[in-house]
Structure formats: structure tokens, C-alpha cells
Design a protein around this nucleic acid. Sequence first.
DNA 1: ACCGCATGTGATAACGTTGTCAATTCCAAT
DNA 2: ATTGGAATTGACAACGTTATCACATGCGGT
Lengths: 337, 337
Amino acid sequence: MRPKAADRATIKEVAARAGVSLMTVSRVLNRTGYASAQTRERVEAAAAALGYRPNVFARALPGARSFLVATLINDAASAATAELQRCMIVHCRQAGYHMVVDSAPIDGDEAGLRAVAARLATLRPDGVIVCPPLCDSPEILAMLEQLGAPFVRFSPSRMGEGPRVGADEIGAARAITDHILAAGHRRVAFLGRGDGLSALRLEGFHSALDAKGLAPAAIDSAANDFEAAGLCARILLEGPKRPTAVVAATDEIALAVLDAARGLGLKVPADLSVAGFGDSDAAALSFPPLTSIRYSMTAMAAATIGFLINPPNSAHAPLGRTFGFELVSRSTVAPPP
Amino acid sequence: MRPKAADRATIKEVAARAGVSLMTVSRVLNRTGYASAQTRERVEAAAAALGYRPNVFARALPGARSFLVATLINDAASAATAELQRCMIVHCRQAGYHMVVDSAPIDGDEAGLRAVAARLATLRPDGVIVCPPLCDSPEILAMLEQLGAPFVRFSPSRMGEGPRVGADEIGAARAITDHILAAGHRRVAFLGRGDGLSALRLEGFHSALDAKGLAPAAIDSAANDFEAAGLCARILLEGPKRPTAVVAATDEIALAVLDAARGLGLKVPADLSVAGFGDSDAAALSFPPLTSIRYSMTAMAAATIGFLINPPNSAHAPLGRTFGFELVSRSTVAPPP
DNA sequence: ACCGCATGTGATAACGTTGTCAATTCCAAT
DNA sequence: ATTGGAATTGACAACGTTATCACATGCGGT
């Protein structure tokens, strides 16, 4: 038998203490409808004295709002997602919401998908935040659509299908490529994964080179994990006409390039320049410290929660918001040898 | 006006379709009480046909259980916490629970503490998981005690105050120090933070040295962030009688030591051996790859959830569970020069 | 005097589920 | 036959909150 939870005061008790009706208390506490200054004061004093806390369940039962925001993450890890989550919790609670987290399979796992749908239907969150890579899964989006819960896709790599919050990935990739070109590089390669985000960043990479009339030295999109990235990097650096700089689609890939360069006796940045994306902890802690792109997670988290809690009321409201970035110049980019 | 959520079937509708009473449906679906095989079958068919999903709020309102587990994290980041959380979500849902995440201030911020208490009182979770460093905060623990919610402390550095799940930190520190001593080192230093976890690991460090009749080359507990750790490391490595090996209380500190060694022209592991704790991503991605201690997050997460959902019924049940570890030998430990 | 409207308050009925108790049937043991 | 209990089912009242409607009151303009 678990210890009985401390008894908590109900609205009824607050009402009795304040000498008003139950509804008046509800109105005062929710700032809905009218209440005289005197009553308001009495009710607030009584609530404070009794340590009254509303019961989410009773509040949600009539069906209006559940005060819950669900964040859907993938089973696989991501440091960026963790940071995002912490930022969102802060914004959630400022709006009086609570955050529940659930994870979903990314592949077309039928049973797993049904299970998430069941959990969300049970929980009836007022909104759902879909993190990458789930935000690009048609199955997940269809499920949410069918569920009828408003959702926001965070950092998706494709347009359409509801509101979207993300960074200007193409612009960021263009900026970091420009930074490398400005240092004097002409043979620049791109190393990415096979996902949508890498495709976006590759687009920015191309755009920067095109503007200068240059062609990419090489493009490889098979760097799907640290090992594969190391392999790709070695192939790239051992081949003929070695690039003098590499734009890596993530910090992790950039670290793999750093490692491969070391293995081949190349000095960074003297012999080879490298840049990544995401400004992860590892970027600052690597050797040499990695030049990368930083996104403002706080601002993006705020916008994400905002979309759910105060949804744009017009049908013609913007379908998403795109945020800027910051180039964090550390020590891995220098003029070519 | 947000789009109306899809109407979901209620128990009442299922009961009507199955031709039984509402309570029978409840009993069948919860596997509580008796039900004939025939009835069970009919009810289950009806529930499936209507896509019935229980409503958490209605379920929790009568006060028995909320089916919610709250995880309390600190505002500050931690990669290990993120991984732990993902593991726990999986175990939560296997037990039919949902996970809400909230963050709390670690210092004695009175207002912040009251706010967390209010949110938890509103949410009435069936259990609370307290992650480091909150699990060692007396204020937080007192608040939870007063709230009356059962809680489990994850990886606390002190005993007492309720159930506890953690790793054998002292044993791990002893093992990694033994590993270094076995390579032949005699001048070994310890570099840690000022927190409880570092203190625990320092204890294991001492224990290993004592067993061999050795004295620590140096002990520094001021490595509270990456910068400070770098400073400590430089002081340590530039001083007289430089240690030939450093046990760092975290991977992050170990990376700072690696960086400082590089700055001073020391080769790792030829001139200096280094080891860390936690087997973070950065440990595998560093150069050289860092020798570290890996903990089994999955097992620990399972035990944590288990403590909350199936609490030990005897008053004399164990107050916690301690898990083992694994020494991950990479490339930063070698015989001394 | 009367209406109309803004302001303030309360009574009552939901919301969907589970706990409790009562009712019924059936079968085995007296 | 009779008793006792297990098996099976249903009726009804909670749980704590908000929505809805109804009822006062006061006040400015006709």
C-alpha cells in the first residue's frame, strides 16, 4: 500500500472558506467572466491559504483543453533534440501547459505506429510537436491528421502538411560555404547523410558555389553514421585532386573528417579546412575546435509552443516560421595551402 | 477555432454495441474482476470495432491512479539524462504509463521550487523520477516528501531519503584506476568537479591506490566546466613531478585534459594516459578515442520505472539498486613513458 | 416608470471512468 | 433440500472542474 498522497484542497473548500459559490472561485482563478474586486481578493486569499492546486484531470474531463503538449521523438538519440526539449519545457510551463514525451518508430512499423496513436488518443494533448526525423514521415503525419490533434513539425526538410518551425538551413549552408570560399578555397567537397536535412544543406552548398561559378570538388551522401562518415572521408581525402575544404552536413560528420585527416597525416586547418552544423558540445570540445553553425533553440522552441498554444486564427496565416543562424568561427577554417 | 478533434468512442458506446453494461466493459478491458469468456470476446470485438481508447482524465479523476510518471530534470544540459529519458519512455509505455518531463532549478530558488511543486500537485503523477543533480538537493527531496508522491532518485551521490537507482560509482572508479595501475603507472592524478558524483569516484580512486600502497600524485576538484577543467589540467601538467596518468571524473573533463596535453606538446597515450566516465558520444569521437566507463542505461531505466510502478511491498525491501559497469578500453591508456 | 445592458453571482448538469454494493445464477458440499 | 460461496453482471454514486442557464443588481437613457 503506497503512502496516501497529501490531501489537496478542492475548489469547493476554497469556496466555503471565501464564502462564495464554487463557480465564482473558478471564474476568479481562471480570470474568466466578471468578479468584483472584493470577491476576487477574498477568493485569492482563501486559495493561497489552503494551498489550492487545480486538478488537471477534472479540468480536462469536460473536454475543452487537456493542458498537455506532447513531444514526439524518435527512439534514436539526438543531442539537439534534448536541448530543444529543455527549452520547450520552459515555454510550456510559462503558458500553463505540461509536456509529455513519447517516442515513435521511424520506419513503417505498423504495430508501433498504432501504439503511438493509441497513446495519443488516450492522452488527448492540446498539441503535438513532431521532432526530426519523424516530422518527415508521411505515416506519422497521416496518423496525426487522422487523430485530429493540432501539430507542429520541428525542423522538417520538406514543406506542406501543417505548420512548421525550422531554421534557414539553405541559407546557413550557403553562409558557411561562403565563409570557406572567402578564405580562398576553390576545391570544396560536401559530405552528408541520405536524409532530408542533408539535402537542404547540400542545396545551400551548391548555391554558394554557383554564385562564384565554381563546381563542387566532390559530393558524398553516404555518411550515415560515424563509421560510414570516416570511410567516406578517407575515400575523399585519399582520392586524386584532394579537396582543400570539406563542408560536413553535421558536426558528427565533421569530427569524422577531422579523424580521417589525422589518420592521413593532414593538418587541420593548414592542409584541410572543415566545417559542420549544429554547434554541438562535441564541436567546441574537438581538436581543433570546429567551425560550425549555431541555431537559436530557445527562439525556435518558443515559436513552436506558440504555434500550438496560440494558433494563428486566420486560415491564411503563415504556415511556418523560419529562423536565422549564427556562424561560429573556431579553428578549422583557414586559407588553403 | 481549432479543428474539432475526432470523436472517440466511450465505454458507454462500447457497452451498447456489446449488449452489456458499462461496468462489464470496464472490467473486461482492465482485466479486473470476473467476466465470462463469451462476454469478454463480445466486449473486445466491440471495443476494437469502435476503436475505443480510454480517456486518461476520466480514469484518473476518481483518484486512484493518474498513469503519469514525471521526470524531473535540471535546466542544465546532460547527454546522459537525455539517453536515460529515452530508455525510460520505452519502459513507461510497456507498463501503460505516460511520461511527463519537468525541469526544476537546482539552487535554492524559492519561487522556482514552489512552481514545480504546484505543477506536480496539479499533475498528481503516480511517481517521480529525480535526475542528477536534483536528486541530491535537500529542498527538492523535502518538497517531494511533502507532496506525498512516491519518487526514485536516479544516480544520487548520497544514501538515504527513499529508493535509489544508480551505478557502482566507487567500484567503477576503482576499476578504471586499477586498469591504469596495471599498465604500470605510479604517479596518477584525479581531476573532478565539486559535486557528489566526483566525490564518489574520488573515493574509488583512493581505494585503488591504497590497495597498492600508493599515494595520489594530485587531486583537484575545481574542474566545474570545460574551461575550468582545462585550467586545472594545465596547472597539473605544468607542475613539478607531472603525473603520468589522469583519472578524470567525467568524459568532458577528460577531453579538457586531452586538449591541455596537446597544448603542451604531450602525446597521449605515449606521454600521458587519460580516462573518463560515462562513455559519452564525445568519448568515442575524440582523438585519441577515450578510455571510459560505460553504464547500462537501459537496465537502470527499467529498474527506475519498476520501483515506481511495482513498488517493493515490504517495509524492509531494499531501498535501492546498484548496477554494474563496463570498462571501455580505447586508446588513451598505455604504459607510462 | 420603463427598458436595455453591463456587471456580478449561484444552481445544476455534464464530462468518462471506476469503486461499491447489490442481485442473480450456478455448483459443490453438507 | 439447504447452505455457502464463487462466478457473473448491473445500478448508482462518486471524482473536481467547467459550461450553461438563470437570476439579481445598478445605472443611464428614453
